[in-house]
Write a protein that binds this DNA or RNA. Structure first.
Lengths: 340, 340
DNA sequence: TCTTGGTGCTAAATGGATTTAGCAAGCCCC
DNA sequence: GGGGCTTGCTAAATCCATTTAGCACCAAGA
């Protein structure tokens, strides 16, 4: 049964011309001297037959496949990862490209295999995404392969896309300041001590730097800093519970991410403290849960989709080989009020 | 610079044989009469040169590309979607395939374009995933194209993968029963009235059917059913708040999904009711938030990854053309206790 | 009349594999 | 010594498009 696909030869035959002529016309080559009549006949034939070029055959000659590779350490674990993918998918679609997605879980062997599989398919470029946002290991790529690093950096491939964490960190502080907070502000998730360590990702360091720079430019200091390594709700819960058990002057919390903030909500509720009347909270990421919380959590968003988008734009458009910073939008909900 | 890729011709030359011989040997064709010596020389040459076949060139002849298409209405919105993708990616990798991911947002035009783009690239098969889980529209595919429907059904393509919702629904009731609940059980999210409507997805209908069948087999009835169309936390909050304002005999809640349960937690907490001491809760999906809640939410999980996995196994292995049901694992946390 | 130049188009090579048809050499057997 | 059979391998076609080189024709100029 299987109706055969229509090939360029079919189109050429129907137009009464050679495949060379058909190819040139369909590709809109400028210097061609083919008659208007030939153009019309080929275009009509292609339309009537529903001709679509075979990408593999074309790629064989041109080395272009309109396909890009997206290799990520994680794809399903965080909303961040899928946001990056979604953004990349959209931008790729707009540019008439498709994307091969691969997950490596950070395993070097799988990374190498992923690259090999992509190269076997002659992808036009590859995006390396990481959820850990640090100096990223990348297996050697053949000279000339385009690559952009998403949410991380790599010395060999300087084109990268990162969230503008510094600015974002500052924005969080500014939100609190705008509501009149000056005292009793605590930081949950980070501390000077932790910063000295290089374990944390580079982007987190920038976030903290932004926070501290805004604090000091307003002449403010934290009344407490709760350092935590893992940033899950339970850790936010514990840190906040500990904090409010120790002191009663806490008026505002800056949480390093929304999951910590979630835990903070729980600890506050158990202690009979209300958000935002008793304690204001501002946080980072704009996780799904930020919208689910009551009251809604005001947070500085990680611009997932915009980042994914920009990565493919840079890959395809050949943007400059530097780090590109994507603004982190403030998402205001209801977790900040003026201090009483 | 750009070092040229090693081709089969390079391997053949180094082995002192023809490309035909090299091809047959590397593909391990059984009927070949080539000498052991020839085998050794070709294999050695391939290894030494690091030869990898060009997939496009091979696909041109064989019509196999070791590539599968994954077209989904949504990719980033829910954890469910990315779980399906992750499962598919893993199974594909194990089978030596790669996957082209496309998002359509349910738009017919984009679906058609996605299919066309996949066909242009000669994919070996296509997985159609939907987050809405209903009869799925699928643009016409050339005869012979393999397809499996993930989380939905389609009359033309009977091979599909669905969660075993019926069984899952029953499991939720059994959990409550096992703890001794017999009275004051309410259902949040669904009602007889809503079921009559066909708007809801087929899988939800099965979930409800399972719940009702288990209830009646234990001679139990719901003391209340709160019908809701949208299943976000706020709706769960409102429904639960309404319910406990009206009556004080509620001892257990079956929520149609975790987000509703999240809302229920909030309403209960505001009313000074404790989970699970005052009210037990069981729910569905095993969303991220189920683990974040305090106490942890006991829920019947949607088996995302297993479903994605199975879909590619069926696609590649040619499983039988029927609906395949994947068990929904019970994830016990701490939201159920014996009634007081 | 012959060259030159432009116009409109095509033949053939190319990319990198797979696959079919078949060649050459050696051996056996009558 | 000639036919037939293995054995071990290769030439060439094929998949489908792109691209280079160049053919055939006509008109204009010398």
């Amino acid at each position: 049964m299987a109706e055969k696909r229509v090939t360029l030869a079919d189109v050429a035959k129907r137009a009464g011309l050679s495949t060379s002529a058909a190819s040139m016309i369909l590709n809109g080559r400028p210097d061609t001297r083919l008659s208007q009549d030939a153009h019309d006949r080929v275009n009509a034939a292609a339309r009537e037959l529903g001709y679509r070029p075979n990408v593999a055959a074309r790629g064989l000659r041109t080395d272009k496949t309109a396909t890009i590779g997206f290799v990520s350490d994680l794809v399903a674990t965080t909303r961040f990862a899928s946001g990056l993918i979604k953004g990349a998918l959209e931008a790729a679609e707009e540019a008439g490209h498709v994307v091969l997605v691969m997950e490596t879980e950070g395993d070097t062997r799988r990374e190498e295999e992923a690259i090999a599989a992509l190269l076997d398919r002659q992808v036009d470029g590859v995006i390396f995404a990481t959820m850990r946002a640090r100096e990223l290991f990348i297996p050697e790529l053949p000279t000339g392969t385009h690559a952009v690093i998403l949410n991380g950096t790599n010395a060999l491939y300087p084109t990268s896309v990162l969230p503008a964490e510094d600015e974002g960190g500052r924005a969080a502080v500014e939100l609190l300041v705008a509501y009149g907070h000056r005292e009793g502000i605590a930081l949950i998730g980070q501390s000077d001590e932790a910063e000295r360590d290089t374990f944390r990702s580079a982007t987190v360091a920038a976030r903290v730097a932004g926070i501290r720079s805004a604090m000091s430019s307003h002449d403010l200091t934290f009344v407490a800093e709760e350092s935590i390594w893992l940033w899950e709700p339970e850790h936010g819960y514990e840190a906040t519970a500990r904090l409010i058990a120790e002191r009663d002057d806490i008026r505002a919390l800056i949480c390093m991410n929304d999951r910590l903030a979630f835990g903070a909500y729980q600890a506050l509720a158990e202690a009979g403290l209300r958000v935002p009347d008793d304690v204001s909270i501002v946080s980072f990421d704009n996780d799904e849960i930020a919208a689910y919380l009551r009251p809604g959590l005001t947070t500085v968003a990680l611009p997932h989709e915009a980042m994914g988008r920009r990565a493919v734009e840079l890959l395809l458009g050949g943007g400059s080989a530097v780090a590109h910073y994507i603004p982190m939008p403030v998402v205001e909900r209801a977790s900040i009020a003026a201090p009483r």
